[in-house]
Design a protein around this nucleic acid. Structure first.
Length: 419
DNA sequence: TCTGGGGTCCTAGGACCC
DNA sequence: TCTGGGGTCCTAGGACCC
């Protein structure tokens, strides 16, 4: 048997209209209807059912601009509920892991797998069975694209999604050239708006043309990433499967406000709330931060946009919520200006390190033991009673800055009982 | 009235040094 | 008259992803 039969291939498994599909699990009446899911603050469209796509609803469209159109067409509008989506995402990944070892959980609704040790003629069959199994166990429809490289698997996935007669699985290797010739440059993974505009201007319209450009020209005009894309389109493997998630480099918690905020008190409450959320996230990852970054901005879609920010470095790596809260407040004190309508604020924890690496620092004083014990107790209470049963007074109670979520269908992750 | 949030990586350009 | 040339490090901002 030739080696070619054992050549390693990639497949990309992508959940169809993931957030909409999740909502449909709880509410089957949403089936066969145009459904959209909104981003935080009910700002933009971030997921569309096929029926909504057929109405011409664009990804990322501001909701207020198309609200009337959606209403007239009987579309169902839902505020996003990430807790649920994350829970279902974990189940999705677990099913894949139970079928194959080489898995990269790429995003909340996508996974790459490497088809190693699977015979060429069995590849397609394996993916088809995987797709059926995912649907059988969690009720989420997926599409699977197969290719020699991750970039080609991405292309194949788009074809699998678009061409209904393929039943959701497509292997691009059978007619690669033809597919690439009809695949627009702007739809290629790694080619964004800026690069696709540039390529259009120099007369490169499709993926096949892009795959044939000169290497050094690609690097010079599209940067190293662009060259990688070009090579991958040619079937040269440059991007490996990342089975282990690389250590996170920063943690961001930021929100747009439901209303404009001009008073220091509300702003301080929001920044405190974000700082605590960021620290909680960091603690759950068992990381420590050396740098804190705080920012506040006005509405970027209005005139006189302004943005203020400040960064502070701690003397040591820390997880101490009190230290970080105080520092965040100090930052805000320094950057706050009166007579500005603030629309958004955020906190970033940077310079993250594991406990072990942090301890390697001569000047480390990781945390006060009392703080550590207190935080553990709060975690336990919130887990036992309910989320946010215990919270810090600085977060405020009324939270007038909080985002709108007018279309939320109330439910909790515990209601999910599919498997 | 109303336009998300959370990430990573790359590059250009300034500062500094020899 | 004539204004080097590298190297390194850092950072802000852009580009891209989902």
């Amino acid at each position: 048997m030739s080696l070619e039969n054992f050549e390693s291939f990639f497949a990309l498994i992508d959940c169809n209209n993931f957030y909409v599909s999740c909502e449909r699990l709880f509410n089957p009446s949403l089936l066969n209807k145009p459904v959209v899911v909104l981003s935080n603050n009910d700002g933009c469209i971030i997921a569309r059912s096929n029926e909504a796509k057929a109405l011409g609803v664009k990804m990322g469209a501001p909701y207020f601009q198309i609200r009337g159109y959606l209403e007239r067409n009987g579309a169902v509008v839902i505020s996003s509920n990430y807790e649920i989506y994350e829970d279902i995402s974990k189940r999705f990944i677990n099913i894949i892991r139970s079928k194959i070892c080489f898995v990269e959980a790429y995003s909340i609704d996508e996974a790459f797998i490497e088809l190693k040790g699977i015979l060429k003629k069995k590849r397609f069959e394996f993916c088809k069975e995987l797709k059926d199994e995912i649907y059988r166990l969690i009720g989420i429809p997926v599409s699977i694209g197969i290719g020699k490289t991750k970039t080609l698997a991405k292309v194949a996935n788009k074809i699998a999604k678009k061409q209904k007669d393929l039943n959701g699985v497509f292997d691009i290797t059978n007619n690669e050239e033809e597919i690439l010739k009809n695949f627009e440059v702007k739809d290629i993974w790694g080619i964004g708006k800026s690069k696709s505009n540039y390529l259009k201007n120099i007369g490169i319209q499709n993926a096949l043309e892009l795959s044939m450009i000169d290497d050094s020209f690609a690097k010079k005009s599209l940067s190293i990433k662009g060259l990688t894309t070009v090579l991958e389109l040619r079937g040269i493997k440059c991007i490996n499967l990342q089975e282990e998630r690389p250590k996170q480099k920063e943690i961001i918690v930021s929100r747009s406000f439901g209303l404009d905020v001009d008073n220091f008190k509300s702003l301080r409450e929001s920044v405190s709330y974000f700082a605590i959320a960021a620290v909680n996230n960091m603690r759950s990852l068992d990381l420590y931060a050396k740098t804190l970054f705080v920012f506040i901005t006005s509405n970027p879609f209005k005139e006189n946009f302004c943005s203020y920010q400040k960064e502070v470095n701690f003397d040591f790596y820390t997880q101490d919520v009190f230290l970080i809260l105080n520092a965040a407040e100090d930052c805000l004190n320094d950057i706050f200006k009166c007579n500005v309508n603030y629309k958004k604020a955020g906190v970033i924890l940077k310079n993250l390190s594991t406990r072990q690496a942090a301890l390697g620092n001569l000047f480390t004083s990781l945390e006060d033991e009392n703080t550590y014990n207190l935080m553990r107790s709060i975690d336990l209470l919130n887990k036992k009673i309910k989320k946010d049963a215990v919270f810090f007074a600085v977060e405020g109670v009324d939270k007038i800055w909080q985002a709108r979520k007018d279309h939320k269908i109330a439910k909790r992750a515990s209601e999910i009982d599919i498997i």
